[in-house]
Design a protein around this nucleic acid. Sequence first.
DNA 1: ATCTAATAACTGACTGGTCAGTTATTTATT
DNA 2: AATAAATAACTGACCAGTCAGTTATTAGAT
Lengths: 228, 228
Amino acid sequence: MRKPSQKQDRTKDQPGERAPRWRRRAEARPAEIFDAALTVFSARGFQAAKLDEVAKLAGISKGTLYLYFESKTALFEAMALELMRVPVLAGLDAIAGAPTAREGLLGLMQLVGRMLGDPRRSALPKLIVSESAGFPELARIWLKTVIQPVRARIVEFIERGVANGEFRAVDPWETAKLVIAPFLLTAIWLRTFEGLDERPFDTAALLRQHTDMLLRGLAPEPAAISGD
Amino acid sequence: MRKPSQKQDRTKDQPGERAPRWRRRAEARPAEIFDAALTVFSARGFQAAKLDEVAKLAGISKGTLYLYFESKTALFEAMALELMRVPVLAGLDAIAGAPTAREGLLGLMQLVGRMLGDPRRSALPKLIVSESAGFPELARIWLKTVIQPVRARIVEFIERGVANGEFRAVDPWETAKLVIAPFLLTAIWLRTFEGLDERPFDTAALLRQHTDMLLRGLAPEPAAISGD
DNA sequence: ATCTAATAACTGACTGGTCAGTTATTTATT
DNA sequence: AATAAATAACTGACCAGTCAGTTATTAGAT
């Protein structure tokens, strides 16, 4: 946890010239504040997080926070919305053009898997879930802008695969949830039980097993499909 | 939200006899307090929950809370531990004796599924996850007393099935996570996004699809299993 | 270049509301 | 009468949010 503070920079100044107590860095502040806020809110939760701590971590005073954000709540919401930008959806369009349903589905899963590999991005699901009681609106937005589009794509791929015979006939809606579930598990688990469990969580192994099981579950019947 | 309060009981007293402002009910209190606490903590989260509200819902005053619990923290922990008692594990032993791995696995899944059907019990996972930052010890205990035993059983069943040819060779550890994931999804989803999504969450349909997909994913290769 | 006025960025001590926890007192029960 | 159960008024710590004052930076004047 390195301090991004510029107060330490005095050694780099020209000798004899005393370093200023602070600098004006209006453009850099918001990003740094978001960064500090994510760390503190993730570690403590919204209510327990102290703005003094966020400010300290961002290398500023609490008063300065209020030059950039109206309130603790506004900061939290702005931070969450910031994390939703440049979303999973960025790569989604490229995948939409996949030649087969199978490839599309796998591509999408890898995309999401890769996203969860970035600790900053994977913090959001846990925060949304944890703070949903206090921020229902945020949950709604996340659902709408992240979950629903991804799920819609999954449903589309499954429907396509079922239609063209790549997959057997399954309920696309419920199956889409099954595709998503292990990713949610990963995001939650890493930030809730990691370090407490008997083995470290192997994200890659889970993803491998997940795709393997999923493709077999979706595989069309060999030949003999009689009524039950 | 009906009040369990006994303050309203005055009408039921014998006519002419004024009802007491309160009664001594030392045995009944803890359960009623747990009940109220679960409601309030679930609705607001630990920090935002007010003990005055818990007390009011339990039909007592805040001071009385402190006759039964040392602190807000102690109340929360006691409540969580209470919810862990009579755990999933109760029915686990019966299932252990299942004749086939398949039956064992399905029995266990139905057990967990049924548990999630009870809104009181299904509140725990969300609470544990949400408050894990402030109560890491609770997360550890839940992992140890609920998750790990269930997961161990799943691993056992899978290993058994792989050994006796019921299932194909899979990684039991990772596959066990895949078995669990949709249940976690259900518990989280119902208490985070329900009412916000485009369709209501159909727990039964998901469970059906989950078992279906899982069994196909575990099914042994038809015949041709040559070395790779 | 150097000085000076104006302004934007920042600080940190302070305030006021909230709520966990305490206690003096009242009420029920034995 | 004695005791246990419960109340409600109280206290004090905590912290979000404020603001009067300070310091860096910029722009204009010389």
